[in-house]
Write a protein that binds this DNA or RNA. Sequence first.
DNA 1: AACTATGTGTACGATTTCATACACAGGGCA
DNA 2: TGCCCTGTGTATGAAATCGTACACATAGTT
Lengths: 248, 248
Amino acid sequence: MKTPSASSQSTRPPPTQNLILSALPSTDYQRLLPGLEFIEMALGHSLYESGGPLPHVYFPVEGIVSLLYVTAGGISAELAVVGSEGMIGVSLFMGGETTPNRGVVQSACKAYRLPAETLKAHFAEGGAFQLTLLKFTQALITQISQTAVCNLHHSVDEQLCRWLLLSLDRLPENKLQMTQELISNMLGVRRQGVTESAGRLEREGLITYGRGLITVLDRPGLEKRACECYTVVRRETERLLPVPRPGG
Amino acid sequence: MKTPSASSQSTRPPPTQNLILSALPSTDYQRLLPGLEFIEMALGHSLYESGGPLPHVYFPVEGIVSLLYVTAGGISAELAVVGSEGMIGVSLFMGGETTPNRGVVQSACKAYRLPAETLKAHFAEGGAFQLTLLKFTQALITQISQTAVCNLHHSVDEQLCRWLLLSLDRLPENKLQMTQELISNMLGVRRQGVTESAGRLEREGLITYGRGLITVLDRPGLEKRACECYTVVRRETERLLPVPRPGG
DNA sequence: AACTATGTGTACGATTTCATACACAGGGCA
DNA sequence: TGCCCTGTGTATGAAATCGTACACATAGTT
């Protein structure tokens, strides 16, 4: 009876929980609806592999998906995170069909998915759907760009703060279930680097840490401690996809 | 009378020198032609500023434009480079109207530019023009992503090789007019770091260096010395925009 | 020929991150 | 209770890069 996440065991949020789908005019939305398939995915689940096919695009309504790049040497780096504000699989309508990175579930994710062909057909009609998808793609470009800058100029401490905030924005609580090992893979640094940074943040009273569960105690403090990258990405995303987000 | 670049003083390459324009069906191209305005831009010229308006999009036919990000602290980093294979100003048709980075001429550039409204009108019609622009945008995303990974995991030596090769692909000769100071701004490292790397490459017989002029002696050697990032970006660009490029 | 601005080479300690190693702590299981 | 696995904390020296400083070379100017 003490299942930790029993509350969300069988909940199925409506597709409108996704920002892109909710932004559609009613007629567009109704036409899309029959093609949407609900799916739940656990941590670590891969939505697509580097260079592989994308049979579906995903519109998350809960949880987080990371866009990861894996180098030839097997080292990884996170390019961006996507939650209910976006979609996974932009390269389909961008005409590339595939893309050289991976989409991996970072936090238990519920999503609606749409067959590739259905998406492309709707996209080709132009209109609001196309415009929204393109705007989201630009927000994604901004996030990837900011990641590039952050990787180059900012300390692990700052990057960790940025990462925590980006994740927090996409989760209902102030808790993240995530080991330091996994975070280190996302940030592309050593596990010890994350341990040391997390320890500093804990000593500063910003977070508490315990066996794969991070609790954020002082969110404003975290924002002060983070680099500008977080704010830039957030502002640009809100500018491009301005919507009354309850959890915003 | 000894103007260094007198040879290209008044040459005006046709718009078809640009890969995107050349890929258009004849009818589309003919309709676009009246709106195209030829323009020459010197090193350092800024096509647009971070967050500023984009009155035109640019289709280079010669030279290189860098997409730069400038942090709040004034430090810069290059996100991508664009030559005659692409265009500058994707955020216009992506629906964002503006973008938080700068477009700066890295190597004397000749381009055709198109008013923003004309571009958006043509884009909205869909068809080959839209598809090509989107594919180029995806190639750009790949390049930015790869920059993010490269910044994170690869040495200055490797990054310098990658950067030289990316530039070389967009220039007619095996020479680059570029000071170490400028390169360091692009790569986001100290000027001394570039000096040391360039010195190593010179000792290995890959390049020669002299007061703002780099000559590449051993291109295959440079490719071996570079990280995988160069090849990934190049292959993906060629996959998305497959065209008989003379200078390819 | 002297001067100056620009571009390049070199040096130094400080800082950050890396690689490797190992100790400890909590939870599940026999 | 004892064991093992996972997750976390800590230590150490190596490597890369940084910040600062300065010397030198070349091209153009006076």
